[in-house]
Design a protein around this nucleic acid. Structure first.
Length: 942
RNA sequence: GCCCGGAUGGUGGAAUUGGUAGACACGCAGGACUUAAAAUCCUGUUCGCCGAAAAAGCGAGUGCGGGUUCGAUUCCCGCUCCGGGCACCA
């Protein structure tokens, strides 16, 4: 636009235009120059200290970005740029988590192959990101669906497959080591994590055939295939990991999820439970994030206790029922046992008389979906007909079967103590089982009391002990008798690692005679074959099962499941360090240099999924010697969500007439969402509204003084509420620098907050005001080669100090307001000193990089502001000699007095008591004492 | 039910280790410049009382009720409401 009339280039008119803040031209120009100059290329070989800033990479959805998405990206970008100015070599990469269900669903619905739609979506994302002016090193971009990337995802999977967890050494080791151990001594020193009852000697092992050996090894592998109950989602046609199921429905789409027995790949993350928990102490995550993870891991202490079974069946003679309890101190309060309906002993202990009832109950349990069980917590159960012998008393304890006991937790069996446990109590009441009281007055018969403070009664050798103390005593006794053992339990389960879908990493596994054979490294990547129709394969298999020519391979069959979404995202932070390496997932040199991610920025929604998985992968890679650290993320910053501010219109019921918000109560109305782009503040653009949808073409309006005012509501930013604001629109209207600063200005980064497009004006005004320190539309350049005065330096350093502190602690909103205060002051001081202004540009560069670059060049500085050095604070300008003290009488501030900072208590008392205002409030009384806190305040107490 | 986090003007939000509550903005109201608009600038803006107005002053005030303290948005006890996570975890 500016160069439409080249002949006018030197006209005064044009000159004035030049001096305007033309953000569109400036931002485009610098984005191009940065690209051409590779300004954000990061080297792995420098003398500078490193700093690694990472954003959680996005799944490139078809909807593109709304203004909420870049919040975290802007924060990390500001911080990266700041660190660079502070002399660090900053790695700040970006990529795409591009495998996943939505692309596949989209393909099924629209017939567009996932690879194609994914590329399109990425192009959209990239265009949107580019406009915001991020300092990503795009030469390091990764895409999880790219074969050069997933080659290494498959490779890491093979490392996990070829590893087992040595519980004694608390680390992963090669499976070959385990084979050597088995050959020499069997498994007596290494309990089988997949089947704890499995015990074999060296000679047993050496006598097994290959298939048997393979089966046993599978029970030890960190990535293993097994048959188990999985979360099956029929609508999605796939299994889901525990963290992908929320309240019995799928996280994605909200479809019902049922329990189903299927052959499935898993990650043995449970072996890492203890380290995942203890590792939290070494990282800087928020407490709530750590809480979420520890709750998910769910560590508890207690005992496993064996009870002798008393049944009709001779075959069970000598068999035990093993229970897990955290309260062995309550062992004398047992009134019954409960086992899960899926417990292995259910069929064998059931008596003939109870058999029909048990069968009926199991049928009922199977008919209930996960969701039903969640929704209605009915008390159900059936007596098995069997009993256990109490180890310390004569009594026989009845064994019940109930779904309130979970098969997957502990041993799937509990000892029920109704006086102390709420669920046991309700169960006992419901089935009229008599309740034994072992805590005297603490149990009132109407509610269980889970206290640990009561003194035990009716409890044999534990009588008189406080419950908390009795726990240890009871366990000692049980261990001594050989019928119980201390036990630490975790509620976390192994993670389902296969999906019956197409758009994911294929497993580098071939099945031959039911044995899983890993592909050699040289065969990687195992490419995902093109497939037109993505319909499911037979028997709950994925679409790849429909490709017989691909499945059949070297006399076996390929694994047709694919890996889940979290596979590629569990290690991507390592690939950025060395993204083009064809020989390794990441060279040791690169990972040793970059090390942990210093700052990881993302939402809380990945608290238990992605973060736990990537922590586990990191620990495994560390154990196997591939990297030198075992926690991936040193520090985690969770950005809040930006909510949408919806606009509502009110239609008078049964008409096409709309009534303004202020008058709506006079009518019976229906509330409708209206697109926020048609509303200025609260004022509806009525013409735009009529043109919006054919339904509204004939709309008429009851206005307030000619203005139709909309109602508003804060809710999720979503297409269906028409409250989505696209960053492209904001950037084209106000510029990227304004957008960046406004997102930071909105509020604390970690907090959820609403988007308000109106508020951006204030930041935009600030940036224009900043510009006017350098240029005036009429007068031209204002900057001068003159020294700044002390007042200006004082304003500048006070501002810079605050911004530096705030940036360091991610308090970006207060940093932006410090800029505003500082610029207001410098404007009032008419400061145009080039010396000061060039320093100012460095300070603002992380926040408004385009503006800073443009003005840096304009005032004649060399090179790029990106590579400048952050100005050091000159404290001499900040020294104060006096302070305006607030003077309070009895705690209420009554006046202020300017007093020398060196003043003593006596000085101050004299000054204060001479002050007319203080004299007035003293009302002739003499003060009891005068409190003087140096540099803070003065309080006169009467 | 359990575990976290939060509540401050009309709005978003500020406020070191307890020390002038409401910074910085938005919005609103009034004004300047302009033929007009945009842009820009100035003034006011927690509530109530007192006042024609301005200035000044007084009282109340950080979800609610108590407490500790010379002094509490900040610390303690007891509630209410909102948000997030987990959910028969023995």
């Amino acid at each position: 636009m500016r160069f439409l009339y080249p002949t006018l280039i030197f006209s005064p008119y044009h000159k004035a235009q030049e001096m305007e803040y033309a953000f569109r031209d400036i931002e485009q120009k610098w984005q191009q120059l940065w690209k051409d100059r590779h300004s954000y290329r990061v080297s792995n070989a420098t003398d500078k200290p490193k700093y690694y800033v990472l954003d959680m990479f996005p799944y490139p959805s078809g909807a593109g970005l709304h203004v909420g998405h870049p919040l975290g990206y802007i924060a990390s970008d500001v911080f990266s740029r700041y660190k660079r100015l502070k002399g660090y070599n900053v790695l700040h990469p970006m990529g795409y988590d591009s495998f996943g269900l939505p692309a596949e669903q989209y393909a099924i619905e629209h017939g567009i192959p996932p690879a194609v739609s994914t590329d399109q979506n990425i192009a959209t994302f990239r265009a949107q990101l580019d406009k915001i002016g991020f300092c990503y090193d795009w030469e390091r971009e990764v895409r999880t669906s790219d074969k050069s990337y997933y080659k290494w995802t498959q490779w890491i999977f093979l490392q996990l497959f070829e590893s087992w967890y040595d519980r004694k050494a608390q680390k992963a080791k090669r499976i070959n080591d385990l084979i050597n151990i088995f050959q020499a001594e069997g498994n007596r020193d290494h309990v089988c994590p997949g089947d704890r009852h499995l015990v074999f000697s060296a000679s047993d092992w050496n006598g097994y055939d290959e298939k048997q050996k393979a089966e046993i090894l599978m029970h030890y592998r960190l990535a293993y295939c097994g048959v188990g109950e999985v979360n099956w989602c029929e609508a999605l046609g796939t299994v889901l990991a525990n963290d992908e199921v929320i309240n019995g429905v799928s996280e994605r789409g909200g479809h019902p999820v049922i329990r189903k027995k299927l052959r499935q790949w898993y990650l043995r993350i449970t072996e890492y439970a203890e380290r995942l928990l203890s590792g939290l102490q070494t990282v800087d995550f928020s407490d709530s994030m750590k809480d979420m993870q520890s709750n998910w891991i769910g560590k508890s202490f207690g005992a496993e206790i064996d009870f002798d079974l008393i049944t009709e069946s001779d075959s069970l003679k000598g068999k035990k029922l093993k229970v897990y309890t955290t309260r062995p101190d309550t062992i004398f309060g047992i009134d019954f046992m409960v086992i899960a309906p899926e417990h292995e002993l259910v069929s064998s202990i059931t008596s003939a008389a109870q058999s029909p009832a048990v069968e009926q109950y199991l049928e009922y349990v199977n008919s209930r979906s996960e969701r039903e069980r969640m929704a209605e917590k009915k008390i159900t159960g059936v007596f098995s007909g069997a009993y256990c012998q109490h180890p310390f008393e004569e009594r026989k304890i009845p064994v019940w079967i109930s779904e309130y006991v979970l098969a997957g937790y502990g041993t799937g069996a509990i000892m029920a103590v109704p006086c102390g446990d709420e669920r046991d109590f309700k169960f006992a009441r419901h089935f009229e089982i008599p309740i034994t009281n072992i805590i005297g007055d603490h149990f009132d018969g109407t509610d269980a009391n889970p206290t640990k403070d009561a003194t035990l009664e009716n409890s044999g050798f534990l009588n008189g002990l406080k419950m908390a103390d009795a726990i240890g005593v009871a366990i000692d006794k049980l261990e001594e008798m050989g019928i119980g053992k201390r036990h630490t339990n975790y509620k976390m389960r192994d993670a389902a690692f296969s999906r019956q879908r197409y758009w994911g990493e294929p497993f580098p596994i071939v099945w031959k005679d039911d044995v899983a054979i890993p592909l050699p490294e040289s065969a990687l990547p195992l490419e995902l074959p093109p497939l037109g129709d993505l319909k499911p394969g037979p028997d709950a298999q994925g679409p790849l099962a429909n490709l017989p020519e691909w499945v059949s391979f070297e006399g076996g069959n390929r694994e047709v499941n694919t890996m889940p979404g979290y596979a590629g995202s569990s290690w991507y932070f390592l690939r950025y360090m060395d993204p083009h390496n064809d020989n390794e997932f990441c060279s040791r040199q690169a990972s040793d240099y970059w090390g942990q991610v210093d700052l990881y920025v993302g939402g809380t929604e990945h608290a238990v999924g992605h973060l736990l998985y990537s922590r586990m992968w990191t620990k495994a890679l560390f154990d196997l010697g591939y990297i030198s650290f075992d926690e991936p993320f040193k520090r985690l910053l969770n950005q809040g969500k930006i909510g949408g501010d919806s606009r509502l219109v009110y239609r008078i019921r049964g008409t096409k007439q709309f009534v303004s918000a202020g008058l709506k109560d006079q009518h019976e109305t229906d509330e409708l969402h209206v697109d926020v782009s048609m509303v200025d503040g609260f004022e509806l653009n009525m013409d735009a509204f009529r043109q919006w949808k054919p339904d509204y073409a004939e709309a008429s309006f009851i206005t307030e003084d000619g203005v139709y005012k909309c109602g508003s509501r804060l809710e999720k930013m979503s297409k269906r509420y028409f409250n989505v604001v696209n960053p492209d629109d904001i950037v084209s209207k106000y510029g990227a620098d304004t957008f960046r600063m406004y997102e930071m200005f909105l509020g604390p980064i970690e907090q959820d907050k609403p988007w308000d497009t109106k508020g951006i004006e204030g930041v935009h005004r600030f940036i224009r005001k900043f510009w006017r320190l350098f240029f005036d539309a009429e007068k031209g350049p204002l900057f001068q080669d003159v020294p700044a005065n002390d007042a200006a330096w004082k304003a500048f350093y006070r501002m810079t100090k605050k911004i530096e502190e705030d940036t360091e602690k991610f308090s970006f909103n207060t940093a932006v307001s410090s800029f505003m205060i500082g610029i207001n002051e410098l404007t009032d001081l008419k400061c145009h000193s080039k010396d000061l202004l060039s320093k100012l540009l460095i300070v603002i560069a992380p926040y408004a990089p385009h503006l800073a670059e443009e003005l840096w060049t304009a005032i004649g500085e060399e090179g790029s502001v990106l590579d400048a050095a952050y100005p050091a604070i000159e404290e001499k300008y900040l020294v104060e000699t006096t302070k305006e003290y607030p003077v309070a009488v009895n705690g209420k501030t009554r006046t202020t007095l300017n007093i020398d900072l060196n003043a003593t208590q006596a000085d101050v008392e004299a000054i204060v008591l001479a002050d007319p205002m203080v004299i007035k409030w003293l009302e002739g009384k003499s003060p009891k004492k005068i409190i003087f806190v140096k540099g803070k305040m003065i309080n006169v107490v009467i």
